[in-house]
Design a protein around this nucleic acid. Structure first.
Lengths: 216, 216
DNA sequence: TAGGTGTCAGTGACAAAGTCACACAGGGTT
DNA sequence: AACCCTGTGTGACTTTGTCACTGACACCTA
C-alpha cells in the first residue's frame, strides 16, 4: 500500500524510468484493485488513462453483432493495455471488453502523464512500441487461425497448451469463446475426442488423457 | 529525383519535422520506385528500414499454411508501414507479404534515423502511434468479420463498396483473397447474385447492377 | 429428503461454407 | 485450326454454424 513498496510491486516499465520521472508517475498514477470477474472496460467506453498491469490476469475479448464472442488476447504482469493507447490518442471508444480473470493489481496513468513519459523517456517509448508490435502480431496470428485453420486442430492445440497434463476447469461455452466458435461445435468435437479416449468430460471440467499431435 | 523536389512530393510525417531533422531524414532516406505487381516484402524477410508511402497503393496480405490468402489492409499516400516497425524493433521477420497494386513511390528510413526521429520529434511519435492504433483497429474489425459474419453479406458489402456504380475488374480468385475464403465459394455466391439479376459476370469482371442492402 | 431452479451438456436436423475433382469457356499464340 | 493458359461452373462430400429442444448435474430451500 505504501509508496515505499511500489518499487517492489511496481511495473517494469515504471522501474526503468529515471528517479524523477518515476516519482512523478507514481504521484499521478491511480492504483486499481480488480476482483475476479470484474469488467475493466466495455465496448464503447472511453479511456481514462493507460492501465499498467502489475499482477493477475485480464482477458480482452470482442463481441460480434450476433453476440458471439472471441478472446483476442490476455494481459498479465508487466503488460500494458495496448488497446487503451489508441483510445487515449484518438478519443474513440473501446471496441472490445476486458474482464478480470485472476484478481489483479494495476495502475492507471492519466493521459497527461502518459504523454510526458512518452516525451521524456526513451525506454518508456520503446516499451510502448514493443507492446504494440506484440499485439499486432497476436492479432495477425488470430486472423490466420480463424480464417484458415480447422476447428478440431485448434481445439486439440488448445487442450495440449492448457491442459497438457491433467484437467482444465472450463465450460464448453467458455471454450467456444476462446476459439471464436459456437458452444455446440465444441461439445461435438469434445464428445468425439471422448469417444476416441483422448479426453474425459465432466461438468465444467475436461480431463486430458492424450491428445494427438497433428502428425498422428 | 532531385532532393529539392522532396518537399513537394514528400510524406506528411516528414513535412511535420523541424527543418534540421527533416534535412537529416531526407539525407538518410532511400527513395524507392515500386512497379505494379512488385513484391515489397515476403513472409520471413527482414526489415531494412521503415517504408513511408508517398503515392500509389500497396496491399498487405497473409498466407495460411494451406496456401489460402487474406488481405489484411492496404497502404496509400502518407501511410506508414506499421508492420515494419515491429520487425525493426524485434528483429523478427515479417509475417505477411506486401504487393504493389498501383505504381508507388516510397522512402525507406533506415533504423538509426527512425530511432533518432522517435527520440527527437513529438509529432513523429504521435504519427507512429496513431498509425499503430489504426492498424490494430483494422485487424480487430477483420477478426470480427472473419469469425462472425456471413460470407454472402460480406460479399455484398464488398461489391457495394468497390463497384457501387459500374463494374469491377477482378477475378474470383482475387476476390476470395479479399474476403479470406475459397474461390469456389465466391463463384457460387456470385452466380447466385447473377441469377437474382444483381450482377452480371464476365471473365475477370463483375458488373454491379443493384446489390441489395441487408434490410431488403 | 424431495422438489425447484439455474446452468451446463448432448443431439438431431438443417443451412452455410470449405474442399476436392474435374469439365468447360474465353482469349490469346503458334 | 489446334493449342494452351487462366478463369469459371458445378457436383459431391466434409466441416462448421444455427436452431430447437432434451436431459443432466449442482445447489438451494422447504
Amino acid at each position: 500500500m505504501e509508496f515505499s513498496e511500489s518499487a517492489g510491486t511496481g511495473h517494469a516499465i515504471l522501474e526503468s524510468l529515471p528517479a524523477g520521472l518515476r516519482a512523478h508517475a507514481a504521484g499521478q498514477a491511480q492504483r486499481l484493485s480488480l476482483e475476479a470477474g470484474q469488467i475493466v472496460f466495455r465496448a464503447g467506453d472511453h479511456c481514462q488513462g493507460l492501465p499498467l498491469i502489475l499482477s493477475g490476469s485480464v482477458r480482452v475479448e470482442m463481441t460480434g453483432l450476433s453476440g458471439s464472442r472471441i478472446v483476442l488476447y490476455r494481459m498479465g504482469p508487466n503488460d500494458i493495455c495496448t488497446l487503451s493507447i489508441g483510445c487515449l490518442m484518438t478519443g474513440h471508444g473501446y471496441r472490445a471488453e476486458a474482464y478480470v480473470e485472476e484478481p489483479s493489481e494495476a495502475v492507471l496513468i492519466p493521459r497527461p502523464t502518459f504523454e510526458r513519459l512518452m516525451d521524456e523517456s526513451r525506454d518508456f517509448r520503446l516499451a510502448i512500441m514493443s507492446s504494440y508490435g506484440r499485439r499486432l502480431d497476436d492479432l495477425m496470428l488470430l486472423v490466420e487461425e480463424v480464417a484458415f485453420r480447422r476447428m478440431d486442430q485448434r481445439l486439440d492445440e488448445w487442450l495440449v497448451r492448457h491442459g497438457g497434463k491433467g484437467s482444465v476447469a472450463i465450460t464448453h461455452q467458455e471454450l467456444a469463446g476462446e476459439l471464436g466458435t459456437a458452444r455446440e461445435v465444441v461439445s461435438r468435437l469434445l464428445k468425439e475426442l471422448e469417444r476416441k479416449g483422448q479426453v474425459r468430460l465432466a461438468r465444467g471440467r475436461i480431463d486430458v488423457v492424450s491428445v494427438k499431435k497433428p502428425s498422428d
